[in-house]
Design a protein around this nucleic acid. Sequence first.
RNA 1: GUGGACGUAGCUCAAUGGCAGAGCACCUGAUUGUGGUUCAGGCGGUUGAGGGUUCGAGCCCCUUCGUCCACC
Length: 372
Amino acid sequence: MSFEFEIVATDGKARAGILHSPHGDILTPVFAPVGTAGTVKAVPPRDLEDLDAQLILANTYHLFLRPGDDLVRDLGGLHEFMCWGGPILTDSGGFQVFSLADINKIDADGVTFRSHIDGSQKRLTPERSMQIQQNLGADIIMAFDQCPPPNDRAEVEAAVARTHSWLRRCRQAHPDDEKQALFGIVQGGIFPDLREASARFVTDMALKGYAIGGLAVGESKQEMYATLDQTLPCLPHNKPRYLMGVGEPDDLLEGISRGVDIFDCVIPTRLARHGAAFTQAGRINLRNARYRADESPIDSALDNYASRFSRAYLRHLLIAKELLAYYLISLHNIDFLVRHVQNMRQAIIEGSLREYAARFLPRYLRHGLTAE
RNA sequence: GUGGACGUAGCUCAAUGGCAGAGCACCUGAUUGUGGUUCAGGCGGUUGAGGGUUCGAGCCCCUUCGUCCACC
């Protein structure tokens, strides 16, 4: 019964669904806050429960290096280790190997790299990634893939071939049973023919869900949307679709409108650390001097613990580099995105997603739009 | 009181007698499958004050004010 995906309602291409998992149902579309090293960075799981976050992502690369997947397994798995009773998704570790570590060698079999923490040499292969993710014990795990720069056709072609070969090995190495679902990843950069071929290959593996990778990594938003337009119809309608690493509020809307069910992104917490907050009127930078004496909350439309604090106080915390600033603004930004996605789910059920988009999108059309 | 050192951007300090600069702070902007970083740009000066020498003075000379140190 686990991992059954029910589509509750559709509005155009957008879908409202329920993905069953061993640790609870996931109401989609869903935005998964991102955790690092087994804890959600700066925001305790208790708060995420309060915000009604239904899925969180934990990073395999970080947990592999520290504290180690064996230890997490011995301590009862990730849910118990990090005190999060809800569904968890782990990435494959591949992305961070490519973005954080010093790569020594990438070959057909896997990747040898040096840890960014202590410089020690490590190796990840599709089989090892599956083993680590089994040890971590997430509900949804990701195939080990290669995410290349999206505009370089030769590189993308090579990465697609490698990703497919690795997916076959992941599929073999992992039981893909009712305890843990393996999702495959479509690559192909911004090239329609490569995306289509990749979608076909990945779909043939008959997995419990499918991800679109290799986007939001340098291409323009128009290129990303065009790629979604072209790729999503190539994926099975009755399986969840996960757009990896996205995104910003407008991207969530654009993705959902096109039929994406699952998202994850660093942006609510990373922006919080840089002092930026989402509001109904657009993005604001709380470091700005204009908020020095602003007694209003970040966004009066939200009601969470951070809502009690004035912009002036949050600005003071930021300027003073107080950890509380990162916590409160992260809480706010996650609340904003979770609410945003929940609103869209409700709009899909009511058949009013276009109206929601018309109200919401203009404020977020321009990247970095400043409010008021 | 005597002798000495030093006064340059908000702060800490650079600058052969030859375009007055850096770091930090402050003010903006960027950050999309997480290391709080980093990057890009901007504001900011009667060089304590006054006079002199010089083609030209932050720099040399005189006066003055201030700070610090040492010694009566």
